[in-house]
Amino acid sequence: MSAVRSTVSGTGRKDEIVNAVMTDWEQRSVVRVLPPVQPRRLAKVPFVELADGRLQGVVSSGSDVERVYVSSITAGSHGLSCSTNNNRPCGGLRGAPCKHLHALVEEAVLQYGGARVARYLRVDVEEPDCSAADLLGRLHGRPASIPAAVVFSRFLRHLAYLEVPESTEPVPELHWFPATGAVR
């Protein structure tokens, strides 16, 4: 299913207002392509993304503030990977997903919705809006080695956005990207 379709069916009333009448959808400059990301607590899993053919992210260690785990699940094959940012393998990952991978999937479902995560990973689920537990139970992959450095550098790049200075020069291109989301 496409990202467009998931926006139409997978979000709140506000998006339906927009999309329901779009006979000329293709000819609009301002349409929503990405479904909105839901806010979540970032303390445990500061970074989650669906990219490079993986659900991947960074899980803060519960015991050491300096340490993070880099965890990922490959789309399709469901290869599981978890190690520290210094490439030390996670001791908990033996066949079944470790607690870091559990946390990764739980937060990904909060952020993107179960349907989008399942679709990206190509997990067969019965209910489109599946839970994290449902998703985890249907992963069929085995531990596989994904270099932690690749994912960790994406996390660092992600953090680097917060260091980009503010600007008061106008950015007219952002007229294509209206803020949305007032549905309270």
Partner: peptide, 14 residues
């Protein structure tokens, strides 16, 4: 018009 632009990440919303 006066504009202010900041960089962010997708988990900073609302």
């Amino acid at each position: 018009r006066a504009s202010v632009t900041a960089a962010k990440v997708e988990t900073i919303v609302g």
